Simulated assay, not measured.
Amino acid sequence: MTSVGSAIFGVKGQRTRPVILLASGVFLGALVGSGGSGQSTAAEPAPTVTVTATATPTAAVDDLAEREAAVTSREAAVETRSQSVAAREADASTRETALNEADQWIADREAAVAAREASAAAAVSSTGSSSAGGSSSASGSTTSGGGSTFYANCTEARAAGAAPIMSGEPGYSSKLDRDGDGIACE
């Protein structure tokens, strides 16, 4: 309607809208009023109103430009966030790989400890079954009736899978602890 008002009155803007609406209302009222006056309108063709836009509304163009700028800004923000997410995913993947490697290392260490414990248990049981009440075994370690173990040197302790030996554990001797820190055959 604004473009029709601009074309008719030569004025652009929102102030012409009420005038145009009033004029079109009067025109339509006159058409409807003449149709109900009792005269036959079948012979007369119905009037047609053609509205054509002759000018581009600047307010609509400005609004579209603002919306386009907002969409462009949002697209840039989405792209930035996508890049941030991709970087975080790469970091998470790197960390996951490191965790998997650490888990494997722990599993390997646990298997090695279990093997050493089994070897030590086998050595203790073979030492206990072959020696009676404090006699010397084939490896050179001795066991007394109380269950304590003696190693002549660290080579024997390592061969039995007992090294390192902590103070208070069977087989510990201050002679095997060179630095006196309570850990023998380290």
Rank of each mutant, 00 (worst) to 15 (best):
V11K: 05
G140K: 09
A55E: 15
A115I: 07
E66H: 03
S141G: 07
Q39S: 12
A42I: 06
G134S: 09
M1N: 12
A114D: 15
T48H: 03
A77P: 07
A59F: 05
A102Y: 10
S93T: 09
R67S: 14
G36P: 00
G10V: 07
S148N: 12
E66L: 13
T16M: 12
S137H: 01
G168H: 07
D108P: 08
A87M: 03
R17T: 08
R67I: 14
S125W: 02
A87K: 14
A184V: 08
T80R: 01
P47I: 02
L99F: 13
T155A: 13
A69N: 08
Q104L: 15
S174G: 15
A123Y: 01
P18R: 02
G147R: 11
K175M: 10
A65S: 12
A152G: 05
G182C: 08
S34Q: 14
A65R: 09
S136N: 07
A77L: 13
A30F: 04
G128P: 00
G128N: 08
G171E: 08
S136Y: 03
V61K: 11
A162M: 15
S130W: 01
P57I: 09
A92N: 11
S139P: 04
S73C: 00
A55P: 00
P57A: 12
A159Y: 00
T52D: 15
A86H: 00
D103H: 01
R88N: 14
E79S: 14
T41I: 03
L31M: 15
S129R: 03
S93E: 06
V51Q: 02
A107M: 04
P164W: 01
A42S: 09
G25D: 15
G128T: 07
A98T: 10
A118V: 01
Q83G: 15
E75K: 09
N153F: 03
S148M: 11
E89S: 08
A23F: 00
V124T: 11
L176G: 06
D177S: 01
L64C: 07
